[in-house]
Design a protein around this nucleic acid. Structure first.
Lengths: 167, 167
DNA sequence: GTAATTGTTGATCGTTCGGTCAACAATTAC
DNA sequence: GTAATTGTTGACCGAACGATCAACAATTAC
């Protein structure tokens, strides 16, 4: 009954995610996004609402693609928790100099935007809980386990942020 | 022989450092800096050259004020290395939600500006070396010590980046 | 006093930003 | 075919950006 889409919103979002991943929220301009997504500005706004909404959807996609598999690995039941934690830290390719969109956002836009900060906080909490689950055999005392899970989360963030400084 | 300065460049730089610390490089606008520094735009440019040069000088000041004392603690000779490392991680106040300017810059502007990236990389290397020095009693094997120093550096970055997500 | 020198100001520059919208295109229902 | 509906486009908007500069202010040397 009406003109059909000429582009796939999922593919456009995927492209936007990569721009935000590489450049961060602030440096990613609408012109950059427009080029990468292959659609015009008006279509971006009709489809995604605003730059910030587009970013939040791209971040959500990033989490589904790159964080959730790690959480699934940590919380699955085969193999020892220690093994799963080691495998978790091997998930990110060594040459991925873009780091982690979630971690970079923690250092960047999350510091100034409350809504983004909440999303980042919640996702990092999910990761912390997954570490906690993986530690349940090794560390029986709850508060010790919680602080070790906290340490592992911070270690993950540090690794992925440091990756962005590679020369 | 000429008109004297009406402001103290060191105090102005200190103010700029706090703006960059809170907002990051991109979000810190010249208007913000101007207000915080208490001098007009023209004077900022005459004194510091450009926004990026001002940022690099502010980052340098940040390192001198907040990173160097930590490095000094790690590399001093009294107390055990383990003790000094523990004290290092207690240097940052728990309620410092701005995190660490060096770490935030690693996740942010360092990803897109080569010059900033080099500075951040070098300063993180100094910190890594300081951890290595503090580990010299505990870990005698060189490559083990190096990877443990790397871990501690990443843990530090993670802690300070995570601090920015506090709700 | 005057001349020379340097610091300070704020208006102004061109550019880029995120965002909007009227015109046009493509489809379905009839 | 026409009408209705929705998708797409690119020109355009005001605002904010980083940066510049001519005019003015304050000091020293004489």
């Amino acid at each position: 009954m009406a003109r059909p889409h000429s582009y796939d919103p999922e593919i456009a979002l995927e492209a936007a995610m990569h721009v935000f991943w590489r450049d961060g929220y602030d440096l990613a301009s609408l012109s950059d996004l427009q080029s990468a997504m292959g659609i015009q500005r008006g279509s971006i706004y009709k489809e995604f609402g605003s730059k910030k909404e587009l970013f939040l959807k791209a971040l959500d996609r990033y989490v589904k693609k790159f964080v959730d598999p790690g959480i699934a690995l940590l919380t699955q039941t085969d193999g020892s928790g220690q093994e799963r934690i080691e495998r978790f830290f091997e998930l990110a390719p060594r040459d991925e100099t873009r780091g982690c969109l979630l971690c970079s956002s923690a250092a960047g836009v999350a510091g100034t935007d409350r809504e983004v900060r909440k999303v980042v906080f919640d996702q990092l909490a999910r990761l912390r809980n997954a570490f906690d689950t993986a530690l349940i055999e090794q560390v029986t005392e709850t508060s010790n386990r919680r602080s070790e899970a906290e340490r592992l989360t911070q270690l993950y963030i540090g690794k992925r942020v440091e990756a962005r400084t590679a020369i």
